[in-house]
Design a protein around this nucleic acid. Structure first.
Length: 327
DNA sequence: AAGGTGGACAACCGCTGCGTG
DNA sequence: ACACGCAGCGGTTGTCCACCT
């Protein structure tokens, strides 16, 4: 595939923008607004694609762009929000005034991801130590999904592993803390979600699917509608849950990595929590709007992608998005 | 000083979803 | 219901530059 439709019609310049081009674009947009982006290059006298103009404006020329390095607070917020929404950079960017999705994405890819993937030194599999480590594995993107793959776990039959990995009728990205805790009693390598993640299921007796965003803050989050329970232990393994820990991915692939616990993140950032709540509510709305259609057709996905067996370079293993791929 | 390497950032590409006819 | 145009999004690639050997 080639250029965008609007770029095929005429010769367009590509690559870095010159100061003159920037000036033309800024002058045009500040005077007339962007209107239809496709017409912008023509009206502004630029040999650029409208899409390119839009990107240049949004990511660089906008007057409210905040320049300079990310503050520790911003970094914490990014990590936290990424734990909720995954790679949905625009959602994260909305919570960081003056920052663009592209900037955050780049920052994440170049810095935070490395930080989170940094291998513990030296790696240890001692169960007694595991409780003090903040490790998680490939395939377990977020702290609330983490499962420690020690020898005991790896050698379990696939079904048993799935039972540990998917103990809840809820998707992994909102792990059931209760189930996890129960599992933890039998397997010390599984950590409770609420130790690491601000989302934990409410203890209310009717178990109606209400989740609490950071139990201390008591932000109520409706994660899934109470009326539907599309997943049962009987059907989830075969239909929804890939046994990605099967023979194709074995012990050798499991590289412990160290990650900062979310519990270390300051909770007093009111704006962060508001933003987090807002983002979560937005996502819940999405879930609500699509839940009936998706769940009833057994079309729910838990991962956008799973590291395949051919991958040998585990240091570069991606942080996998745990978000349902339809979101 | 010159070449190699890796990180940071900017820009591009292709896909998706939405609005409209 | 369908096709099309378009904006927006996220992944990927390209480029620049600082640092290292």
């Amino acid at each position: 595939m080639g250029h965008h439709y609007c770029c095929k019609q005429r010769k367009v310049k590509r690559g870095l923008w010159s100061p003159e081009e920037d000036e033309k674009l800024v002058r045009h947009i500040t005077t007339y607004g962007h209107g239809c982006w496709r017409k912008v290059p023509e009206q502004a006298g630029l040999q650029r694609c409208g899409k390119s103009c839009r990107l240049r404006w949004l990511n660089y020329l906008r007057p409210d762009i905040k320049r300079g390095g990310f503050t520790p607070e911003e970094e914490k917020l990014i990590i936290r929000l990424h734990g909720v929404v995954g790679n949905r950079w625009t959602h994260i960017a909305k919570c960081l005034p003056g920052r663009t999705d592209n900037e955050i994405k780049n920052y994440w890819n170049s810095w935070i991801k490395k930080k989170l993937e940094k291998p513990s030194s030296p790696p240890t599999t001692s169960p007694s130590n595991l409780d003090h480590q903040h490790n998680y594995q490939m395939g377990c993107s977020y702290p609330n999904q983490q499962v420690f793959m020690n020898q005991n776990f790896i050698t379990k039959p696939t079904a048993a592993r799935d039972q540990i990995l998917y103990p809840s009728p809820y998707p992994l990205f909102m792990f059931d803390a209760v189930s996890l805790d129960e599992t933890t009693n039998n397997n010390t390598n599984v950590r409770s979600a609420d130790q690491h993640f601000p989302l934990a299921r409410s203890n209310n007796s009717n178990n109606n699917g209400t989740w609490i965003l950071d139990q201390q803050q008591q932000h109520q989050v409706q994660a899934f509608p109470s009326s539907t329970a599309p997943f049962t232990n009987n059907n989830m393994d075969a239909q929804f849950l890939p046994s990605f820990l099967g023979s194709s991915i074995g012990n050798n692939n499991m590289v412990p990595v160290e990650v900062e616990s979310c519990s270390n993140i300051d909770d007093e950032e009111e704006i962060s929590m508001e933003c987090l709540q807002s983002t979560t509510q937005e996502l819940n709305a999405l879930v609500h709007s699509r839940q009936a259609q998706q769940c009833s057709s057994n079309n729910f996905h838990f991962w956008d992608s799973v590291e395949g067996p051919s991958s040998s370079n585990l240091r570069s293993a991606n942080i996998l998005s745990s978000f349902p791929s339809y979101l």
